[in-house]
């Protein structure tokens, strides 16, 4: 399974991510997920979110999740980009691409990846006030 993991302070440019789609002729499905920063946090308006990571452990934990996905579904490729540092409201904070033979495993693997990330990948949010 192809794996690409990017933790970056640079903006996520969705059209560029999509244009560089990595799928083989056997990939019948490509699932994309884009997560964006909301303009409110616990009911209060905010400018954005500052993302902090323990990068070495975050990379390691993402790879463990990728291992589990590879063991569970016939996924051909996963690409994930997660922003670090300040991300303004409305901007993308995470982008995921999962390529697989059929849609069911692609959707399932993408959901699993996001859910597991939120449980164990050491990344934290700090709201940036208006």
């Amino acid at each position: 399974m192809n794996r690409e993991l990017t933790l970056t302070k640079a903006p996520i440019v969705e059209p560029e991510c999509v244009a560089s789609r990595l799928a083989s002729p056997e990939s019948g499905a490509c699932v994309w997920f884009l997560g964006s920063v909301r303009g409110t946090e616990e009911g209060c308006a905010i400018r954005g979110i500052h993302y902090e990571a323990y990068e070495a452990m975050a990379r390691h934990q993402f790879q463990r999740i990728f291992d589990e996905i590879e063991a569970r579904w016939p996924i051909q490729s996963i690409r994930l980009v997660h922003r670090l540092g300040p991300v303004m409201a409305g901007e993308p904070s995470i982008w995921v691409e999962v390529a697989s033979p059929h849609r069911a495993e692609g959707f399932a693997a993408c959901e699993f990846l996001i859910s597991e990330m939120k449980q164990r990948v050491p990344i934290w949010k700090q709201p940036i006030p208006l």
Binding site: Y54, A58, M117, K118, R120, I123, W124
Partner: peptide, 10 residues
């Protein structure tokens, strides 16, 4: 040893 609050990626 690393000590931190619950994670919040995404």
């Amino acid at each position: 040893v690393s000590i931190f609050p619950p994670v919040q990626g995404g």
